[in-house]
Simulated scan of single mutants.
Amino acid sequence: MSGRSAATRVALERGRGAAPAPLRLAHRQARHELAMLCSLILANPAAASSLAKLVDSEVERPDGALVLGVLLNLADYEEGARFWWEFAAGGGSHLAASCLWFLHQSRGEPKDANFWRLQAESLAQLPQPAWQLSSPDRPLVSRSVRAEILALCKQGMSPRLPSRLAAVLKSLPVEDDNGDWPEIPHWSPDVVHHLRAATEETPR
């Protein structure tokens, strides 16, 4: 996924040009924007291969970190999502910076939200980390799960992964550095396989 995405372009324009809204409405709108952006990232055909190659030749890839952050956010693992989005944004992903902008805005943290808004605008002008898709790939989650997430977004609700899929994310190895990032889930080479297996077991 290269260049500035349609979702991000719309978000940037809204952030610059919209009149100030009541605080609760602004928070709700930011949650909606984050949910929509997450659903679009999850639907990208390269999401599975990007996640599978998050650690490739001992180099962690920002596109895989972006996808992992999306999954953790949809599994209600917000701090884990923030960690991986910051990693991805540090690698040049404007989509990750946009996720962080919406996340902080939804939490009523205007200073951090503004910082990541500016980062998203700046990074969107630069060449983006490539999404690697060498061959047609199986989706990371089923069409029915993606459709349900998108439908909830359109209804203004907060989408969440089905419990079987969320359980895969919550079973990831966790490290606690006793610093700013306590109990952060880390990538596992089996996570794509387990997510697909859980998707197949999820009732339609």
Rank of each mutant, 00 (worst) to 15 (best):
M1N: 12
R4A: 08
R9H: 08
A11S: 12
R16S: 04
A19W: 05
A21I: 03
A26L: 07
Q29E: 14
Q29C: 10
S39I: 00
L40F: 12
P45D: 13
A47V: 06
S49P: 03
S50F: 07
G64K: 09
G64P: 11
A65S: 12
L66N: 06
V67S: 05
L68N: 01
V70F: 09
Y77T: 05
E78C: 07
G80D: 00
R82E: 09
A88I: 07
A89P: 01
L95S: 10
A96G: 03
F102Y: 10
F102W: 10
H104R: 02
Q105C: 07
S106Y: 04
R107Q: 11
R107E: 09
A113E: 01
A120I: 06
Q128Y: 01
Q128G: 07
W131C: 14
Q132P: 04
S134R: 15
S135T: 15
S135D: 15
S144L: 08
Q155F: 15
G156E: 14
R164L: 15
R164S: 12
L165E: 07
A166V: 04
A166F: 04
A166N: 05
V168N: 01
S171L: 13
L172H: 05
V174C: 13
N178Q: 13
P182R: 03
P185H: 09
P185E: 10
S188K: 08
P189C: 12
D190F: 04
E200T: 03
P203F: 09
R204L: 05
